[in-house]
């Protein structure tokens, strides 16, 4: 398959990439290419110019300081999967993305900019309360993950804005986990649940839960959180709280050739319970 013709430039800096994309009417950024190149081949995307971020070293890598972990937009899923600095829920989810070849190319920035409802990272970033740092012609800003994902393949990025890094709080005493049901061919999520919990005095203190893969955009599972907050963590309380995910998923559950909406609804409580149990077992 051949993409339609386009020009190509390799940006040397974020500033150059911003300048190139914003001064051109039909330009697209290229990171790992593992969502964009398939779309180019199918001619779902037909840009006149590709601005390749691939060699901007400043956008790569994971660093930790003062309780915060910062992940460059160009960091690959393989790097995230191998990181001890990231919260467990992120490294665990990264290791479940696609396959090794996909993880070697796919990047954090490309994943979230694409906002595929079947992606894993939006779910993880919402659970972690991530801040998404972007740079554009008007300067830089940080967007909370809750506000970043707007709809199916739609984010709150403005024209010409580039994701530079994602910040999440470092994990200390919390435990976290990601549980996923796969599409058997692509390994994208049919349903994924991310949970992070802290335990104090034998009860659940701080809890964040999110779900994705089954709704047009990943959602925060407020009902699950409310049902478990302040409760002791055992099978009974976890099963009870996990059942509340039906309310969080709401009416807009996706059904497609891989899994019907009814199937996704029927597995949701079980998958949520597994994520909560695994997170609780890791909390200290």
């Amino acid at each position: 398959m051949y993409p339609s013709k386009f020009d190509y430039v390799r940006a040397q800096s974020v500033e150059e990439a911003v300048e190139r994309t914003s001064s051109h009417s039909n330009a697209k950024l290229l990171a790992g290419g593992h969502s964009l190149i398939p779309a180019l081949k199918l001619r779902l995307a037909q840009p006149d110019l590709l601005v390749d971020l691939g060699r901007i070293a400043a956008l790569k890598g994971i660093s930790r300081h003062n309780g915060t972990v910062s992940v460059g937009a160009l960091t690959t899923h393989a790097t995230c999967a191998a990181s001890d600095d990231l919260p467990k829920v992120w490294s665990e989810a990264a290791g479940l993305i696609g396959d090794p070849q996909v993880r070697n190319r796919g990047t954090v920035g490309g994943n979230i900019a694409h906002a595929d409802p079947a992606s894993d990272l939006p779910t993880v970033l919402i659970a972690l309360g991530a801040q998404i740092h972007v740079q554009g012609t008007a300067g830089s800003r940080a967007i909370p993950a809750d506000e970043f994902f707007v709809d199916l393949f739609t984010t709150s990025l403005e024209e010409g804005e580039i994701i530079t890094r994602v910040e999440v709080p470092a994990e200390s005493n919390q435990g976290s986990a990601y549980t996923k049901v796969f599409n058997p061919a692509s390994r994208y999520a049919i349903l994924g649940v991310a949970a992070q919990v802290a335990i104090a005095g034998g009860v659940c203190r701080q809890l964040r839960v999110a779900a994705g893969g089954s709704t047009p955009k990943a959602i925060r599972a407020h009902h699950v959180e409310a049902a478990l907050q302040g409760q002791p963590l055992n099978d009974t309380t976890i099963q009870h709280a996990a059942a509340a995910i039906a309310e969080d998923l709401g009416e807009e559950v996706i059904g497609d050739m891989y899994a019907s909406a009814a199937y996704r609804r029927s597995i949701a409580a079980q998958i949520a319970a597994r994520a909560l149990s695994a997170a609780a077992a890791r909390a200290r």
Binding site: L30, G33, H34, I37, P38, Q101, N104, R105
Partner: peptide, 8 residues
């Protein structure tokens, strides 16, 4: 290891 059909 990469899939060379998905790299330019």
């Amino acid at each position: 290891a990469v899939k060379s059909c998905t790299v330019l």
